[in-house]
Simulated scan of single mutants.
Amino acid sequence: MDFSPLTDAIASRFYDKIADICDNLMLHVAAEGIVFQCEWPYAIHLLGHIYAGDINSARFLWKSIPSEIKDSQPELIAAWRIGQKLWTRDYDGVYEAIRGFNWGPQTQPIVAAFSGKSAYCSSAAGRDVTVQTESYTKKMFQLLLDAYSTISVQDTALFLGMSEDDATKYVLQEGWILDSASRMFTVKKQSIVAEQKLDPSKLQRLTEYVFQLEH
């Protein structure tokens, strides 16, 4: 079975393409009547859906995997544990699931990229490279921006999966304000400046409407 498109995507850090590549490969081999269950990279396939934020597809894939495969692949179970925590919105549990398994050389960079932590993996040249991309941590930070105007240091650290010191440094760099006495952050909302272009026809109708009101 040719997994080179998948291998190339992982090597190039195109983790957002993993799920589609695996889905297409699975459809192809199924159409050819090829038996692939034992050698299929289920953990990578599952992590691909998780990385893409498609938890529904991750759940469907998990349910379709035979029990004997699940029982024989601890890394697959560990990958689904991340999916379970996301499904139940157990944000602190997501980080615990990530940290609670010794990931293999192929899955480690995917998990590291997803979590937003810097991780080291061996490159083809035998050198250590740092893997860091758009991350779950950044997504969680955006959630905090949208949901809170004030939040405790403890809860912030919980959501971001960091120590309280690291979480404090992280959000202070984003302009948040810390009240040391209450240990509460004031959340700095991101300002969105939208350029509004007025349609000439709308301007004409507005002018006519104002004229009617005045007369």
Rank of each mutant, 00 (worst) to 15 (best):
D2C: 04
D2Q: 06
F3R: 06
L6K: 05
T7N: 10
R13L: 15
F14A: 14
Y15E: 03
Y15K: 06
Y15M: 09
D16Q: 06
D16I: 12
I18C: 05
A19W: 11
A19Q: 09
D20R: 12
I21T: 03
C22P: 00
D23T: 14
N24I: 15
L25A: 05
M26V: 06
M26R: 07
A30C: 08
E32S: 02
I34D: 00
C38Y: 06
E39D: 00
E39R: 01
E39N: 00
W40L: 07
W40I: 11
P41F: 08
Y42S: 01
L46W: 09
A52S: 13
A52M: 08
D54R: 08
S57G: 05
A58S: 09
R59I: 13
L61D: 00
W62S: 06
S64N: 08
S64H: 08
S64R: 10
I65D: 01
I65G: 01
P66C: 01
S67P: 00
S67H: 08
E68R: 13
E68C: 14
D71G: 02
Q73K: 15
A79K: 06
W80P: 00
I82C: 02
G83H: 07
G83C: 06
K85H: 02
K85G: 00
T88C: 09
T88K: 09
D90Y: 08
D90G: 01
D92A: 04
G93C: 09
A97P: 03
R99Q: 03
R99I: 04
R99G: 01
G100M: 08
G100R: 08
N102M: 15
N102K: 15
G104V: 08
T107N: 09
P109C: 10
P109W: 10
V111A: 10
V111F: 14
G116N: 06
Y120S: 04
C121L: 15
C121W: 15
A124W: 11
A124R: 08
R127V: 13
V129F: 07
V129L: 13
V129W: 12
T130S: 12
Q132W: 14
Q132M: 14
Y136E: 02
Y136S: 01
Y136M: 12
Y136V: 11
K138H: 07
K138N: 03
K138R: 09
Q142M: 12
L143N: 02
L143F: 12
A147D: 13
A147G: 05
A147H: 12
A147W: 15
I151P: 04
I151N: 03
I151K: 04
I151C: 06
D155W: 11
T156F: 04
A157S: 03
L158Q: 04
F159K: 01
G161A: 09
E164P: 02
E164T: 13
A167F: 07
K169M: 03
Q173T: 11
Q173K: 14
G175E: 04
G175W: 11
G175C: 09
W176H: 01
W176M: 06
I177A: 04
I177Y: 08
D179N: 14
S180T: 13
F185N: 01
T186Q: 02
S191V: 15
Q196K: 14
K197F: 15
L198Q: 08
P200F: 13
S201H: 13
Q204Y: 15
L206C: 04
L206T: 05
F211Y: 11
L213C: 03
E214A: 14
E214W: 14
E214H: 11
E214S: 11
H215W: 10
H215I: 15
